[in-house]
Amino acid sequence: MDAKKSSHDEGLMLVVAMTSLAMVAFSANSLLTRAAFQTTAIDATSFTAIRVISGALTLLVIAMLQGAKLKPSRTGWWSAVLLFTYVAAFSFAYRDISTGAGALVLFASAQLLMISYGYCKGERTSLLGVLIALGGIAAFLAPTASAPSLSAAALMAVAGFAWGGFSLLGRSSDSPISNTAASFLWAVPLVLILMFVQRKHLSVDTMGITYAVLSGSLASAGGYAIWYWVRVRMTAISAGAVQLSVPVLSAVLGVLILSEEISWIGGISAVITLGGVAWVTLTAKAGQQGRSSAGAEDAIR
Rank of each mutant, 00 (worst) to 15 (best):
A28L: 10
V230L: 14
S293P: 07
L194T: 07
A147P: 03
G222W: 06
F47V: 07
V280P: 09
A88T: 04
P148M: 02
A154H: 04
G55M: 06
V197Q: 13
I268M: 06
A181S: 15
A44F: 00
A241V: 13
W163M: 02
H8N: 15
E261F: 07
Y224H: 10
L190R: 05
G275Q: 01
V213P: 10
A181R: 04
D174K: 11
F184D: 05
S73M: 10
A270D: 00
L150T: 12
I137R: 10
L249F: 12
A22E: 13
A145R: 12
K200W: 12
S54V: 04
A110S: 05
A153T: 07
G102W: 08
L249Y: 12
A152S: 04
L244V: 02
F161N: 01
F92Q: 03
R95S: 00
F84K: 06
S20Y: 14
S175T: 08
S151D: 13
S215W: 01
I272P: 04
G295R: 04
T283V: 15
L214Q: 01
S203V: 04
W78Q: 15
Y119T: 09
S109C: 11
S173V: 00
V204G: 00
A138P: 13
A296M: 06
R171W: 07
K4Y: 12
F184N: 02
I177A: 03
A101H: 09
V61H: 05
K71N: 14
V158Y: 06
A152K: 01
I272N: 00
I53C: 14
G222L: 05
S220V: 09
L185W: 05
L82R: 12
D298C: 07
A182C: 08
L192F: 12
M114L: 10
V213Q: 14
V130S: 07
S238L: 10
A145C: 11
I62V: 15
V61D: 08
W227G: 07
T283H: 09
Y224C: 10
S151F: 10
I193P: 12
A36P: 03
E261C: 09
M18Q: 15
R34C: 03
T85H: 09
S54K: 00
S7K: 15
V246I: 14
T48P: 08
L185Y: 04
G240P: 07
R233G: 12
A142R: 08
A36V: 02
I300A: 13
S30G: 11
V191I: 15
V158R: 03
G135E: 08
S6C: 07
S263T: 00
S269D: 12
G55H: 08
T58F: 06
S30K: 08
M207A: 11
T281N: 11
A181N: 03
S73W: 10
A25K: 02
L65Y: 01
L65W: 00
K121P: 05
M13C: 11
G135T: 10
K285N: 13
S146D: 15
G223R: 01
D298E: 05
L113C: 06
G287T: 09
D9S: 13
S263C: 00
A284R: 14
E123P: 02
S27E: 04
M114R: 06
V87K: 04
E123H: 09
I193E: 12
S183T: 07
G222I: 07
E261S: 10
R95Q: 08
K200P: 15
L274H: 10
K121G: 14
L244N: 04
Q111I: 01
A35H: 01
L57I: 07
R124A: 08
P148A: 05
A133H: 11
